[in-house]
Structures are given as C-alpha cells and as structure tokens.
Design a protein around this nucleic acid. Structure first.
Lengths: 122, 122
DNA sequence: CTCGGCGTTCAACATATGTTGAAGTCAAGA
DNA sequence: TCTTGACTTCAACATATGTTGAACGCCGAG
C-alpha cells in the first residue's frame, strides 16, 4: 500500500482558524504569504489540508523569535509535496538553528561589550 | 574621587547615528520610544551621552530575536542613572533570558509536534 | 428550494518600525 | 558676521502584520 492519504484539502478557513487559534483574517493573510496553501472549491472557497493549522501555530511561535512571515514561508517551501517526518524534522532544525544563531549573535554582542570593559561607554 | 564622569550629554543626533550605524531618523525614533535619552540645548537640539549608540546597537540585535522596541526600552528602563557594569550585566542577562525563553518555546512546540508522532498531521 | 451561517473580495483602518521631504533654525568656522 | 551644513518639526510615504466592515456568493439542513 503506497500512497496513503495524499493531503486532502477539506478544511474551511473557519475550521483552520479555530484549530490554529487565530482569526480567519489571519489564515487568509498567511495563505497570501505562502505559509499555508489552499485549493479552491468550484464556488471559489478555500479548502486547507490538515497541516494548515499546524503550520500556522509553528509560524506564530517562530515569529516570536524574530522570523518574518516571509522567512517562515521560505522555510516551509522546502517541504516537498506530502512531506515525511524527516522533512518536517529538517524544517524544525532550520527554525531552531535560526533562533539559536540570533541568540548567539545577541550573546556575542553583549559579551563583546562586557569584555570591551566599557559597556556602553558606561 | 567619587562621581567621576556623570554622563555628559554632548553628542549630536548625527554623531550618534554614525556611531550606531543607523539613520538619524532612526535615532530620533528610538529616542521617542525611550530606547535612548537626550537632553536639549538652548536651541532645542538633542544631545546624547556616550551610551546612546551602544544602546541602539544592542537594540538592533535584540530586535532580531523578536523583542519589540517597546520591550527593549522597558528593559533599558531598569538601568539606574549612571549605571554600573553590574547594571548592564543584569540588562544583558534579561535580554539573553528572553531570547532563550522564546527559543525554548519554539523548541518545545516543535518537539511536541514530533512526539505527537503526527507532526502537522502529516 | 430556501435560508442562515460561512465563505469571498476589497478597501479602510490599526500598530510597529522606520524613511523622506519641506520649511525653517542653529551653530561653528572663514 | 555670514554662510553652510547639521539640526528641528511635521506630514506623508513605505513595509510588515493583521483586523474590520461592506457588499455579495456558496452550501448544507430542513
């Protein structure tokens, strides 16, 4: 049995919003910016797959460490169609690496200040 | 010899901007939002002390880890008048702690996803 | 098949973070 | 003193990240 459950686009914008804990306007915003993807019904309504709410939740947490929506969408873009756990693992690693690099930069800057012995020319 | 070099407000907005590597408009913006402080000359021009450029550089790095200007100003507000190295040390710790807490939240979220064994309902 | 709850788009508004330009003032050197 | 570059304020613009409201369309339950 290959090909089990290729992502099925069944969820409405309201369902995704409720699942992700954001407003429907935010879901549309994230779709516009490539954080989530949707198909359209014949009546032009969006239908999301199950990953949408999860992506949005991850995006929200990633935004808190300084990643922009554009950056997050770019990272998610590395996911293949119908991603495997390993694919998500790489995305997770990329996100964590970014956060840690930025924290390291902050730490380095502050350390340099201290060892300069005149932190903010006190 | 007590009281040596209580902060002297001598630097112009242009000097601070050059020292911090930002536009003068940004320096004024950061002053408006309490990241740096200035006195005024009789002619109403801003004069900053030596810590201004440093504060702005720190703020820039802190923004990269998701701190807002308001949050950064709030953290800097804990600095007493004419701060000692220890005071700056506490500020540095606060900044690092914030960055690490946010990274930890990201990591926790991603870990929970993985162990849920259905990361983004793959 | 109709009705009410969702969905759609688009524009305006809101906040955060700045930049740019106009019009006018200050200050330091020739 | 006069000039000229740097300063001032204020408003408009710009981008990121959304929210809100109007006007209208879709769809599933009765």
């Amino acid at each position: 049995m290959t090909a089990e459950a290729l992502s099925t686009y069944t969820l409405t914008v309201g369902e995704v919003a409720a699942a992700a804990g954001v407003a429907t306007s935010a879901v549309r915003f994230y779709e516009q910016h490539g954080v989530v993807h949707a198909e359209r019904t014949s009546g032009d309504q969006r239908r999301f797959d199950d990953s949408a709410a999860c992506r949005i939740r991850v995006a929200k947490v990633a935004q808190r460490v300084g990643l922009t929506v554009r950056e997050i969408a770019g990272i998610f873009d590395e996911l293949p169609r119908d991603p495997q756990p390993a694919d998500w693992g790489r995305v997770a690693e990329t996100l964590i690496r970014e956060a840690e690099e930025r924290t390291a930069a902050l730490r380095a800057h502050l350390d340099a200040m201290r060892s300069g012995s005149r932190l903010c020319e006190l």
